[in-house]
């Protein structure tokens, strides 16, 4: 599904954010992308959907090179959940925002309605359908922002810090929802406990390089490795 080979990305002033990254993910996998602040997690996700460009190396999403020509096809297959739900949700009402993508991709009204209903039921927020977005709580907004990409029926879901600013109950709810989604998911976060609950595989980024890539339990229980990458053991493994 996703194939990255020797990816290098630099900002304008020559600051290297990603350094020789190679990574491939299969259909249906759940991959945790962990690393300290500034390790390049968000940049990597943004490169996959072409919000950041001018990279060196090769990125393929579902066999398509990420470039200007393919980008709209790739974006149609890929749902990206922003860290900040206020950027994700810009329409006045929940239903308008969830319908935004299917309407823009030109589906007929019945199909749009079907997708909106399906997305809302999938994460149990049918009751929010006609509510105003600016009146929702943070937890509700997070769930709605996930619904806005589920209505695209994407094959790949990218999430940037999905559990940030959620209270324990909402966080647990989010974990259950993530576990029920069958698509390929890449979840960037430093909430390592959430990664343990949602992802089988974990990629650890440190200083723009892949420091480890393997089974979540193994990667996240290696105290020295985590500390060298600016992280700590997940809370449940701390004694």
């Amino acid at each position: 599904m996703i194939d990255i080979k020797n990816l290098i990305f630099e900002y304008d002033r020559g600051i290297r954010v990603l350094d020789n990254i190679s990574l491939s993910c299969k259909n249906g996998e759940s991959v945790g992308l962990v690393g300290a602040n500034g390790a390049g997690k968000s940049t990597l996700l943004k490169l996959l959907v072409g919000i950041a460009d001018k990279y060196e190396g090769e990125i393929k999403v579902d066999g398509l090179d990420v470039n200007k020509k393919n980008i709209s096809k790739i974006r149609e297959k890929t749902g990206y959940v922003f860290q900040d739900y206020d950027s994700q949700l810009f329409m006045p009402k929940v239903v308008d925002d969830v319908a935004f993508a299917p309407v823009n991709y030109g589906f007929a009204k019945e199909e749009v309605d079907r997708r909106v209903d399906k997305a809302l039921t999938q994460i149990n927020i049918e009751h929010l359908r006609d509510r105003h977005i600016y009146k929702l709580s943070g937890g509700e907004k997070k769930l709605v922002s996930i619904a806005t990409i589920l209505s695209m029926e994407p094959e790949i879901i990218l999430m940037d810090e999905p559990s940030i600013a959620l209270d324990p109950k909402n966080r647990r709810n989010l974990i259950n929802i993530l576990n029920n989604l069958g698509q390929l998911k890449i979840i960037a976060s430093h909430d390592l406990d959430m990664i343990m609950d949602t992802c089988k595989r974990t990629v650890l980024l440190s200083g723009g390089r892949i420091a480890a890539d393997g089974d979540t339990r193994e990667v996240l229980s290696d105290k020295e490795l985590l500390e060298s990458a600016g992280l700590e053991l997940p809370l449940r493994l701390q004694k």
Binding site: I51, R75, F82, S87, F90, F100, V103, N104, T148, I149
Partner: peptide, 13 residues
């Protein structure tokens, strides 16, 4: 960016 990722083409419905 969020609009573009969801197929924004300059129109709103």
């Amino acid at each position: 960016e969020s609009m573009c990722l969801r197929g924004f083409n300059g129109n709103f419905y």
